[in-house]
Design a protein around this nucleic acid. Structure first.
Lengths: 232, 232
DNA sequence: CCAAAGGCAAGTGCATGCACTTTTTGCCCG
DNA sequence: CGGGCAAAAAGTGCATGCACTTGCCTTTGG
């Protein structure tokens, strides 16, 4: 879990945005954790200015929360808000799946199917890490296959905000195989161009993930007043 | 067009964000128009720092486009991207309408219906400005009625990005009455809790608006190299 | 007359500084 | 021993300054 110095392109602000966002979505920085401008600046060896700008942008997209004059923290999501995001995610994925069923090109369909079949092997091996890669790729293909940039963007953004809460899900026994089965239903529907079925399958898939995650979900947010400076 | 000093709360950066965003969604600043940090800072009598931060945040939410070292411009949306946003909007509104049909409280249903009936009068009078107010309010009620904060946020954000392109639509003859009729179908479906019908009606409504807008849509983006300094 | 080169003005990107706000600390008093 | 309070420390918000990049405009050689 340290793709640190890949973060090396664009302006300093961009690098900061990516670096901090990465630490949030991977769960390295936990909800509620304080984001001290000075420390971050020191940590990345830049001045506070680009850090401030980055925090501003991250707060604009909802990953961090800014309290005027009181610093920024990693956005804390309530159970209720979390549920609303999962529900939205299910709807968004359903839309992507429907559109994909209708609009994917032949090439897109073929590679979706091929990758999906390839991932079956990971399930047999119980290779969770590797399966996760295919899983991510699978969903990305769905989003792109919808051929609608705006929906794509909304879905990707929502997904990344949910990332910290999906993390532990594959630890549930048998989840790997179940996930593949669910993907299979989606793929089948898409291959035969059945938009309604694809949408429903995708929605169900996310709903199940949602419930699976709910079990773990409580990624205990950092008590605001605790320092936890050790981590930083 | 000068609600200047209404923009007076929160930090300077927040004010800048709102001020600039407002000018963009109202169409006062047009797609492609250059956003010069210095001029904006002078215009609002602040230093460049908060302006920069504001531009960063606006670019994070897609309202402006930032070219490193080359300044920011009001985001230019291609016909294709515009279409994708309208399509997304239709889907999002459909979701809100479905959820509203299922989840609105009694009070919410009643006030939706009442306001809707009240707006009928604006149609008779042909009071476009006033109807626009009811129209906005109507849609907001739908978004809130879905009882899902995330969908609400996505929908509001998408709507505001579409705002500049919806502007001229009510100039189409008879559009006012048609709009009310379409709202009526949605309201009726919601009142009887028919989620599917409400969703479909909302989707159709947006689709029609989309087509209506497409007629005008080409809010001729400012040629990038033209100065147009007069406006600023 | 045109093309390439060079220099200049405008504007961006980041660092630094300072005023102001919040939080912490340590002290006093009940 | 705890509650409150004031001063210090820490941290944020914005302004300013300077180095660097870009685009333009002039100049010069073909």
């Amino acid at each position: 879990m340290s793709g640190r110095r890949l973060v090396r392109s664009g302006t300093t602000v961009d690098q900061m945005v990516r670096a901090i966002a990465d630490r949030i979505v991977t769960g390295y920085l936990r909800p509620g954790e304080k984001l001290d401008e000075g420390s971050l600046a020191a940590r990345f060896d830049v001045s506070r200015t680009p850090v401030r700008e980055a925090l501003g942008q991250l707060s604009a997209i909802g990953l961090v929360e800014r309290r005027p004059n009181r610093g920024a923290i990693v956005a804390v999501v309530t159970q209720e808000h979390l549920a609303s995001m999962f529900e939205s995610m299910a709807e968004l994925e359903a839309i992507c799946a429907r559109f994909s069923a209708e609009r994917m090109t032949g090439a897109e369909r073929r590679s979706l199917e091929m990758e999906h079949q390839a991932s079956a092997r990971m399930v047999q091996l119980g290779a969770e890490e590797d399966y996760e890669y295919f899983n991510t790729e699978f969903h990305s293909r769905l989003y792109r296959g919808a051929h609608n940039t705006h929906i794509h963007d909304l879905t990707v953004a929502t997904r990344s905000r949910l990332a910290p809460f999906r993390r532990a899900q594959f630890m549930l026994p048998g989840r790997l195989a179940k996930s593949w089965q669910e993907h299979d239903v989606i793929v089948t529907a898409i291959m035969r161009g059945d938009a309604a079925a694809a949408g429903k399958a995708a929605q169900d898939h996310v709903s199940i993930v949602s419930e699976a995650s709910a079990v773990f979900a409580t990624v205990d947010p950092v008590e605001t007043r605790l320092s936890r400076s050790a981590r930083q």
